[in-house]
Amino acid sequence: MIDSVGWGTLGELALRHLYLAGVPLVVGLLISLPLGWLARHVRWLGPPLVAGTGLMYTIPSLALFILLPLVLGTRILDDANVLVAMTIYTVALLTRTVADGFASVPSHVSQAATAMGYGELRRVVAVDLPLAVPVVAAGLRVAAVSNVSIVSIAALVGVSQLGSLFTDGFNRNAMGPIVVGVGACVALALLLDAAIALLARAVTPWLRRGVPA
């Protein structure tokens, strides 16, 4: 089955897929952090921000891949189109998650930090954010799997990654590449998901200690 694609090609496509799905995941998270914070802390901004970013997820990806070159002035085959589109979807999923994450921080802990003399920004970074990790990580895992799935559609506009195996198989009327493509997408999604879960676990050592002996 793999022979219908070749290990070399498969590896190359998988790496591109990871790149196109993964980089937006990181960039999207970095954008969602301040947005989620704003949604949580500026009362009138919360609902429109969460609803607005959430709505972006409903834009069909194919439309976005085709429209973005017009907006950005890029060429249709540019990776930038996919990277920006995937970042938009990531922000759409994560803004609410980040806001929920900040909401999950016990208010007496946050207030204690303020009372100790933390400035706002410093407190968010040093206290609120670490405590929001479990909630944010859960959302990030959803976004990762979603990104891996949506990126494949970019094959329709000719940007190569694992999705190219579907168009290729369709054009040649061959099942092999399609099955391999699906398997590789699932594997990649699982891999990203597990990586985020492990990372979240690694940065939250306090959640793993038991109650007093």
């Binding site: 007496h108 204690a112 930090a113 003399g117 933390y118 206290v127 405590l131 939250t204």
Partner: peptide
Amino acid sequence: PAQLRRSIGYVIQHAGLFPHR
């Protein structure tokens, strides 16, 4: 405010300790 607060100790009901530290 931040500077003022650093010069004043503060204890609250449920201790308000940072669970991650």
